[in-house]
Design a protein around this nucleic acid. Structure first.
Lengths: 243, 243
DNA sequence: AAGTGGTCTAGACCACAGC
DNA sequence: CTGTGGTCTAGACCACTTC
């Protein structure tokens, strides 16, 4: 039997949820893996199957797990197709969505600026990796991104040539740094572009930009990445359902 | 005992969910009302409490019900305090949120323009009520709204002086027209203001605007209102959680 | 003290996947 | 056929609200 160590005042299913989330975060099970069956988990922790079900229900609704009747319960593969598809429309919507091309413009280690430090919950001035990146579709620039990562977690990124990063960062984080993005929070605002941003995005200075600030969390709810992306507002479109 | 009539192949909790949702749509219980306790519902339909709980869980996660431990389960009040609070920030965030003042600038009956007709799923040119409305906080204009309503449903609005409409339309729809808004869909884009919009919102022509197009649905999922609102982009802020 | 929702258990049976 | 998740039951005890 394995102990659920967390705060005893919390309900059992909550503690099991946290325990499972931690095991996923620790890459005990990788995305796509089958986790133990409900019965096995119940026996393992000496709790009832109903309680295990409730913990798993939570993780499914949080998007970490995926049930399949008759087969079992899987760790879900992270599929953040990036903010691009949620927030921007493309004229070239001819059928399939393409993954936008990415170009890393800059990579440096620096002391964490205060906004990045507070988003990542680390000390101001602690060493971070800063990336500048431009994302394009059909050669047209759509997002200019500034990305901050705690150096301790992502040191292996520094050994890799930036032109081998590929078009998506999150798979790179998983493969190279063992860091998995599970959820994220984004805040959108509108800004007027300065001349540098305008040049990057091939717009005119003074044109409106959408600014997307994102904090990405691992399955343990620790913030691991902070980024600020800017894209031309004329391409922006966002749809919500409210209830 | 009351029969859950729906398709017998569906799980019991699903059929109960549908039954309860229908009773809410039929205004059997009004927003704010206490529904019968879990035990009462179980006895009423001769099913077990666990099954009732699961049905109620669904409705809670769909936003139709609201549980309060020790008190009971309530029909959730539609609290669309307008897009204002979801999409805009206020400097005067000192404590409580105020309901913005509203001024109806214009009310007319007209043939439905094609965008309104397709959103409301009525014939193009069918008679609709068109309202223009300005929403302000502390005297500062924040949203300029154009609203379209099917005349058949909302005819009673035409008998009411517009200066008695009050600051919120949805309570008015409920009280005067028996029309209840349950859900909505919104699409956000960015536009550059023309001189008329700029004057209304006290900005300069050419300043960026957030455009919010909303279709509001009744509990039966029929569209009942279409509106297009414009607000100054410098006040815009939107937060999403992704998973 | 009585009534409500919240947690937890133990077990039955069903539906589906895979051998 | 076996093992998995999905549905449903019946009942215990806890935590909170109200009177």
């Amino acid at each position: 039997m394995i102990n659920l160590s967390a705060d005893e005042r919390l309900p059992l299913y909550q503690r099991l949820r946290d325990h499972l989330a931690a095991r996923i975060a620790a890459r005990d099970w990788l995305p796509g893996d089958l986790i133990p069956s409900e019965g096995e988990l119940a026996a393992l922790h000496s709790i009832s199957v109903g309680t295990v079900r409730k913990a798993i229900d939570r993780l499914v609704s949080e998007g970490l797990l995926d049930r399949q009747q008759g087969r079992g319960t899987y760790v879900r593969r992270a599929r953040f197709n990036s903010s691009l598809f949620r927030f921007f429309r493309f004229q070239s919507e001819s059928g399939e969505r393409k993954v936008p091309e990415s170009r890393i413009l800059r990579r440096e280690v620096m002391p964490a600026p205060s906004a990045a430090a507070s988003a990542l919950r680390i000390a101001e001035g602690a060493p971070v990796i800063h990336l500048s990146r431009l994302r394009m579709i059909d050669g047209e620039p759509l997002l200019s991104e500034e990305i901050w990562l705690e150096r301790a977690r992502f040191a292996t990124l520094l050994d890799l040539p930036t032109d081998t990063f590929g078009d998506l960062l999150y798979p790179l984080y998983e493969d190279r740094c063992g860091q998995m993005v599970a959820t994220a929070e984004e805040t959108l605002t509108v800004e007027v572009s300065n001349s540098m941003q305008a040049r990057l995005l091939k717009r005119d200075a003074g044109d409106p930009l959408i600014v997307i600030e994102r904090v990405a969390f691992d399955p343990d709810r620790q913030p691991i990445e902070w980024r600020r992306s800017r894209g031309p507002a004329d391409r922006f479109r966002y749809h919500v359902e409210i209830r």
